[in-house]
Amino acid sequence: MNSIVATLVSGILLGSLYALMASGLSVVWTTLGVFNFAHGALMMIGAYAAWTVSEGMGLGLLPGILAGVATAALCGIVIEYLLIRPFYGTRHMLLVTVMTTLAALIILEKGAQLIWGAKLKQLPRLVTGDVSIFGATISWHEAIIILLAPIVLLLLWRFTAMTNRGRSLRAVGQNQDAAALIGIDVPYAFAIAFGLAAALAGLTGALLGSIRFITPVMGSEPLVKAMIVVIFGGLGSLGATAGAAYVIGLLEAFLILWIGLYWTPFALFLLMIAVLIFRPNGLFGRA
């Protein structure tokens, strides 16, 4: 009984992290039609920037997290400007932007290695101490992540569904020409979408930096998990992506309990293949 509760809680924690990661991928995809391979690297940049401000300069964790979010957002906007924007409307834009964001991933990873070195780093926790949930013990920091993720997702959803600026992102995603005709600044919308997604990645990184070690390659495993999430959920809608993130997180936690850490990635992967064979646009995606 205890182990089931503990597994549930760790699954929800994983789901929260995947939801924060994958929602950024989803925002960029729905607005720009670009899959950002550098998303995990932006998360890593957020973690390192948070570490520099918080530990390197000794300014404390909250300014550190803010710096991490801001740095990642800035990197995102620069990536959009230099590596995505020149290729809008070209024939193989989807394929080309996969390659340019891969290039961005390599530049960020190797750049981080040159700047911060290979030594492992870690952030302190937001709140020290543990909390017990129905007999399952997790740290307060992890509990805060679990509580924070739905709030952030809700704010993101409110932004894209309820505000004019957020709606303009969706309009641009649906039809760029029509959006431009009614006076939406399309390039500005692209920059906003990319910056917003990068900020989400930076926030995830800064939060994760207290639980895991910060390394130049820390973003690649979450990126692959976020990919599995968007394959399950389809890339098109924020709600489906977030839902899929929690499903995958819980599934992963229970698979680790049942078949062990080594075989879990395979089970998830086989499941993903099975989903794609029957639903080529994702489990919750529309055909």
Binding site: F35, L94, M227, V230, I231, M272, I273, L276, P280, N281
Partner: peptide
């Protein structure tokens, strides 16, 4: 994009 994602994964 799903081809990219699966082959990459």
């Amino acid at each position: 994009i799903y081809v990219v994602l699966v082959t990459f994964a």
